[in-house]
Design a protein around this nucleic acid. Structure first.
Length: 374
RNA sequence: GUGGCUAUAGUUCAACGGUUAGAACAUCGGCUUGUGGUGCCGAUGAUGAGGGUUCGAUUCCCUCUAGCCACC
C-alpha cells in the first residue's frame, strides 16, 4: 500500500509510493482541493496537465448537494466528475469546526446539525460517514473527527480527542464490515485523524490509541488553525517520533510553502490546503525566488499581489522562469486587467499558475530528498 | 432665446441652519491554512464659483457657470 522509496539522510523526510484503487501517488504530494467535486475554475484535463496525482473532495458538502443518490447513479464520484485518478474524501469533521454554530448535538453516537443549504436536520455518525465515502468510491477514506478551535481549554481539547478516538474505533469497525469481501487492490485506504491540540500528552495518547486500532494512514488534524507556527512545528516534531514509520502521514489543511517544507522534514507525506486556489482567485500569486536554490531557506519563494498598482503596465509574465500555460502566454498587466474587471478567465489562469507552483514545489521537494538535500 | 430642474468623493446617492458632511461601488494597501458559493480588514477621497442673510450656511436668498428637460 505504502512503500518508502527513499529515506533522506538529512532529516525525517522520505519519498514514497502510495497505491490506491485508482492508481499510485508519489509522495510527498500536495492534493488540490475540489470540495464540491471540482477544483474551482479548472477542468480535470487541466489538472492532469499540471501534474495533479490526487484531489480532495468533501463528504459533508457532497452529501448536502447533490446527495449520495445522484452520485451513486452516476457510478461514483470519479465518473460523476470525470476524473479517473485517486480521490481523497475528507469526512466532514472540519465542517463540525467551521460550521459549529449549526451543530445541535454532538456525542459518542455522532453529530446532529442543520444544513446551511436548506435548514433540514442532518445527522452524521462515524459509520454513516464511512458508508457515504464507500458510495462515492473514494480512494482514501477519512474518519469523522472533532476538531476544536485552538483557544479552547485543555479539558475540552481532551474530550474532543477522546471523542475522535472513539469515533475512529467505530469507523474502523464499519469499514471492516463494509469491505470484508473486497479484494485488497480494490479496497480504499482508511485514514485516522490525530487530535489533541497543542498538548503533547493528548497527542501521544491519541496516536497510541489509534495505532492500536490500526489504520492504513494517519492524518494530523487540528493544526494551523491559529496557534503560533513555532508551536505547530513543535507538535510535528513530537508526532514524527510517534507515528508508525511505514504508514503515510497526512498533515491536514496546511499550508504556506515554507510550512510544507518544514513538515516534510518532519516526515509528512501528504498535504492539502486552500491557499493556492483561493489566493489565486484573490490575486495573490506564488513565484520561486530563483536566486535562492535551497528549500531550507524560507526565502525560496515570494508572493506577488497582482492587484497592486505597480503591475498595471508590467509586460512581464508572473514568473519568467515558470513554464505554466499562464506564464507562457500572458503578461501581469493583462492578468491584472482581467482580475480587476472580474473576467472569469482571470480565475482560471491564476489558479493554473498557483497550482503549478505548488505541484512544482512538491516535485522539487521529492528531488531534494532523493539527493539527501532536504 | 424663454421657463423649469439639478449641481456634495472618480461614480451613484445620503444628510442637516449647529460636534469631525455619511454610504455603496471604484481606487490604494493588507489578510485568507482539512473552501459557509468571489470573502474579510483598513486607507485615500467631496459640498461648482462669487456675493448676501445669520452668532453659525453644504442647507435659506441673489448672480454667474455648467448639465439635463420642456417650449419657441
Amino acid at each position: 500500500m505504502f512503500r518508502i522509496i527513499k529515506q533522506s539522510k538529512k532529516s525525517l523526510a522520505r519519498c514514497g509510493e502510495l497505491t490506491t484503487p485508482h492508481g499510485k501517488i508519489n509522495t510527498p504530494f500536495f492534493m488540490p482541493i475540489a470540495t464540491r467535486g471540482a477544483v474551482k475554475n479548472l477542468t480535470p484535463e487541466e489538472l492532469n496537465d499540471l501534474g495533479a496525482q490526487i484531489i480532495l473532495s468533501n463528504t459533508y458538502h457532497l452529501l448536502l448537494r447533490p446527495g449520495t443518490k445522484i452520485i451513486k447513479r452516476a457510478g461514483g464520484l470519479h465518473q460523476f466528475i470525470h476524473w479517473d485518478k485517486p480521490i481523497l474524501t475528507d469526512s466532514g469533521g472540519y465542517q463540525i469546526f467551521s460550521l459549529r454554530k449549526n451543530i445541535l448535538q454532538i456525542n459518542q453516537q455522532g453529530v446532529k446539525f442543520r444544513s446551511e443549504v436548506d435548514g433540514q436536520l442532518i445527522s452524521l455518525t462515524p459509520s454513516k460517514v464511512i458508508k457515504i465515502q464507500q458510495i462515492l468510491k473514494s480512494d482514501i477514506i477519512m474518519v469523522l473527527d472533532d476538531c476544536l478551535p485552538h483557544l479552547n481549554n485543555k479539558k475540552k481539547i481532551d474530550l474532543a480527542e477522546q471523542l475522535t478516538t472513539h469515533w475512529a474505533k467505530k469507523s474502523k469497525q464499519a469499514y471492516t464490515k463494509l469491505f470484508k469481501t473486497v479484494k485488497n487492490k480494490q479496497r480504499p485506504l482508511l485514514f485516522a485523524i490525530v487530535q489533541g491540540g497543542i498538548y503533547t500528552d493528548l497527542r501521544q495518547r491519541s496516536i497510541s490509541n489509534l495505532k492500536k486500532i490500526g489504520f492504513d494512514g494517519y492524518a494530523i488534524g487540528g493544526l494551523t488553525i491559529g496557534e503560533p507556527i513555532a508551536k505547530t512545528y513543535q507538535i510535528l516534531d513530537i508526532l514524527s517520533q510517534q507515528l508508525p514509520v511505514n504508514h503515510p502521514r497526512y498533515l491536514m489543511g496546511a499550508g504556506q510553502p515554507e510550512q510544507i517544507v518544514q513538515a516534510v522534514k518532519r516526515g509528512i507525506d501528504l498535504f492539502d490546503c486552500v491557499i493556492p486556489t483561493r489566493n489565486a482567485r484573490h490575486g495573490l500569486l506564488y513565484v520561486f525566488n530563483h536566486r535562492v536554490q535551497s528549500l531550507q531557506n524560507d526565502n525560496f519563494y515570494q508572493k506577488i499581489h497582482l492587484t497592486n498598482n505597480k503591475h498595471k503596465d508590467d509586460r512581464r509574465p508572473i514568473d519568467s522562469n515558470c513554464s505554466c500555460y499562464t506564464c507562457q502566454h500572458y503578461s501581469r498587466a493583462y492578468l491584472r486587467h482581467l482580475l480587476m474587471t472580474k473576467e472569469n478567465l482571470a480565475l482560471r489562469l491564476l489558479t493554473i499558475h498557483n497550482l503549478s507552483f505548488y505541484l512544482n514545489l512538491m516535485a522539487k521537494i521529492r528531488q531534494s530528498i532523493a539527493k539527501d538535500k532536504l
